[in-house]
Amino acid sequence: MEKKNVFISHRWDYKEDYEKISAVLDRSKYDVSDRSVESSDPLVGTKKEVTDAIKGKIDSASVILAPARPAAVTVGSMGLKEIKYATSKGKKIIAVDTGTTTSVASFWADNDIKVVACRKDSIENAIG
């Protein structure tokens, strides 16, 4: 089984996005090492310390998954900063439509980032 280090960009106030994506990864053909921030172990410290810790998690990931919902990439959000940082590092980024909203952010199409359904086959195909 192939090992994949995955970072799921998420906000804990939308935990259902993280939980849906994580559940699909658990059923995937990959041996997944989740590099995401855990709710049981939130990052603490100064803004710079938290940002640096998140960058470290992104650096250790081979693929970044992000909810496709508009709130995930609002101007000034940590999600947007995570995606921009991952892009600057040449990371594979996949937006996942978890079905929790009726729309997806135009940001993904504007930045040529693939949006896939939150299904095992769709995510596996996108990861490659």
Rank of each mutant, 00 (worst) to 15 (best):
M1C: 05
M1N: 13
E2Y: 15
K3F: 09
K4T: 06
K4W: 02
V6L: 03
F7G: 00
I8R: 01
D13Q: 10
D13M: 07
Y14V: 02
E16G: 07
E19R: 14
E19G: 03
I21L: 00
I21W: 03
A23H: 08
V24Q: 11
L25P: 05
D26S: 14
R27Y: 14
K29N: 15
K29A: 13
K29C: 12
Y30G: 01
S33Q: 11
S33W: 11
S33H: 11
D34W: 06
D34V: 13
V37F: 08
S39I: 14
S39C: 07
S40V: 05
L43P: 09
G45V: 09
G45E: 12
T46I: 13
K47T: 14
K48C: 10
K48M: 15
V50K: 06
V50L: 11
A53C: 06
I54G: 05
K55T: 01
K57A: 02
I58A: 03
I58R: 00
D59I: 08
S62D: 15
I64H: 03
P67E: 03
R69F: 15
P70L: 02
A71N: 15
A72E: 12
T74W: 07
G76Y: 09
M78G: 13
G79D: 01
K81L: 11
I83Q: 02
I83A: 00
Y85F: 14
T87Y: 08
T87Q: 15
S88Y: 01
S88N: 14
K89I: 04
K91E: 03
K92N: 03
I94F: 07
A95V: 08
T98A: 06
T98W: 09
G99N: 08
T100V: 07
T100M: 11
T102A: 14
S103R: 13
V104N: 15
A105K: 03
S106D: 13
S106R: 12
F107R: 03
F107G: 00
W108M: 04
A109S: 13
K114Y: 07
K114V: 10
K114M: 12
K114W: 03
V115C: 06
V116T: 05
R119Y: 11
S122F: 12
I123R: 04
E124R: 12
I127C: 00
G128A: 13
